[in-house]
């Protein structure tokens, strides 16, 4: 089971590796560099953006309530 997983992963990796060699786009160059640390940064940025979007929605809701007060 574990061996099968490794083999599958290795094949996936070699496929993506071959693809990267065929046409290394700027995105792949960036993301695969330094142990793929930029993927982690990307994940952090996505979380931050979605949470900010949520705060904006709450903000607008409260603003509507405050305007009703006047």
């Amino acid at each position: 089971m574990k061996k099968f997983l490794y083999i599958t992963l290795a094949m996936l990796a070699s496929v993506s590796g071959v693809m990267a060699q065929a046409e290394p786009t700027w995105l792949e160059n960036t993301m695969y560099a330094s142990g793929k640390i930029n993927v982690v940064i990307g994940v952090g940025v996505i979380m931050f953006l979605v949470l900010v979007g949520y705060m904006v929605s709450i903000d607008r809701k409260l603003k509507k309530l405050e305007e009703g007060d006047k």
Partner: peptide, 23 residues
């Protein structure tokens, strides 16, 4: 509504992660 926000986070981050590990 909050659950949907976290589902969005999960889907978006998972998709990015999958692209550069599973291809």
């Amino acid at each position: 509504k909050v659950g949907l926000i976290f589902a969005t986070i999960g889907l978006a981050t998972g998709s990015l992660w999958a692209r550069f590990t599973w291809g």
